[in-house]
Simulated assay, not measured.
Amino acid sequence: MRAAPASAFLLTLALAACSGEAPAPAPAADTPPPPPPAAAEDAPPTGSIAAREAEAEPSNTVNYDCEGIRITMAQEGEGADARVKFVVDGVTLDLPRAETAQGDRFADADGNAFWSHGTDEARLALQGQHERNCARVY
């Protein structure tokens, strides 16, 4: 009658092997717990690149098309201390406010000027070039 207990033992081992589950290893006493998941603020940005750039663009910028030259103009300061900055052909122009009878005009001593008329029209003069009409791009 010794065969019955041995058969039962072998049957138990065979069933355990067929289940495909390995016994869970016991955690080591000196192993630190895993780090918590990253915070929500560390999540990578989603959406299109253009959408992310639009969110990062300062609210004081205005886009213009000046007869084929596209500029994104940023105005800083107010009143007599106001100035505009924009990039043309890889060169950043920083123009201080200039006196004018109408509109907002910004110019430097080198002959570069930006003169806005209302909210949608402007003129751009670059050193040694003809003046260009500019239209605001929305």
Score class of each variant (00 low, 15 high):
residue 10 L to I: 13
residue 11 L to M: 12
residue 12 T to Q: 11
residue 12 T to A: 15
residue 12 T to P: 05
residue 12 T to F: 15
residue 13 L to G: 12
residue 14 A to K: 08
residue 15 L to A: 15
residue 15 L to I: 15
residue 15 L to F: 15
residue 15 L to M: 14
residue 17 A to C: 13
residue 17 A to F: 13
residue 18 C to P: 04
residue 18 C to N: 11
residue 18 C to R: 14
residue 19 S to M: 07
residue 19 S to L: 07
residue 19 S to N: 12
residue 21 E to Y: 00
residue 21 E to S: 00
residue 24 A to N: 04
residue 24 A to S: 10
residue 25 P to D: 07
residue 25 P to E: 09
residue 25 P to Q: 10
residue 25 P to T: 05
residue 25 P to F: 01
residue 26 A to Y: 03
residue 26 A to Q: 14
residue 27 P to H: 10
residue 29 A to R: 15
residue 29 A to D: 14
residue 30 D to C: 08
residue 30 D to Y: 03
residue 30 D to F: 05
residue 32 P to T: 01
residue 32 P to Y: 02
residue 32 P to L: 03
residue 34 P to Y: 10
residue 34 P to D: 11
residue 34 P to R: 10
residue 35 P to G: 11
residue 37 P to I: 06
residue 38 A to Y: 07
residue 41 E to I: 13
residue 44 P to L: 09
residue 45 P to L: 15
residue 46 T to C: 06
residue 47 G to M: 01
residue 48 S to A: 10
residue 48 S to T: 08
residue 48 S to P: 03
residue 48 S to E: 04
residue 48 S to H: 01
residue 49 I to W: 14
residue 51 A to D: 01
residue 51 A to Y: 00
residue 52 R to P: 00
residue 52 R to Q: 07
residue 53 E to Q: 14
residue 54 A to H: 00
residue 55 E to P: 01
residue 55 E to G: 07
residue 56 A to E: 03
residue 56 A to I: 00
residue 56 A to W: 00
residue 57 E to H: 03
residue 57 E to Y: 00
residue 58 P to D: 10
residue 59 S to V: 05
residue 59 S to E: 05
residue 59 S to K: 05
residue 59 S to R: 07
residue 61 T to M: 01
residue 61 T to C: 01
residue 61 T to W: 00
residue 62 V to N: 01
residue 64 Y to F: 12
residue 65 D to V: 01
residue 66 C to P: 06
residue 66 C to R: 08
residue 66 C to W: 09
residue 66 C to A: 11
residue 66 C to F: 09
residue 66 C to M: 10
residue 67 E to M: 07
residue 67 E to I: 04
residue 68 G to N: 06
residue 68 G to F: 10
residue 69 I to Y: 09
residue 70 R to G: 08
residue 70 R to V: 07
residue 71 I to Y: 06
residue 72 T to G: 08
residue 72 T to K: 14
residue 74 A to M: 14
residue 74 A to D: 07
residue 75 Q to Y: 03
residue 75 Q to W: 03
residue 75 Q to V: 09
residue 76 E to H: 13
residue 76 E to P: 02
residue 77 G to Q: 05
residue 79 G to P: 07
residue 79 G to H: 05
residue 80 A to G: 08
residue 80 A to T: 12
residue 81 D to T: 02
residue 81 D to N: 11
residue 82 A to S: 14
residue 82 A to D: 02
residue 82 A to C: 03
residue 83 R to S: 14
residue 84 V to G: 02
residue 84 V to T: 07
residue 84 V to F: 03
residue 84 V to P: 05
residue 84 V to I: 14
residue 86 F to E: 04
residue 86 F to N: 08
residue 87 V to D: 13
residue 87 V to C: 05
residue 88 V to M: 06
residue 89 D to F: 13
residue 90 G to V: 04
residue 90 G to D: 04
residue 94 D to S: 15
residue 95 L to I: 11
residue 95 L to R: 11
residue 95 L to K: 12
residue 96 P to Y: 05
residue 97 R to M: 09
residue 97 R to H: 07
residue 99 E to F: 11
residue 101 A to F: 13
residue 101 A to D: 14
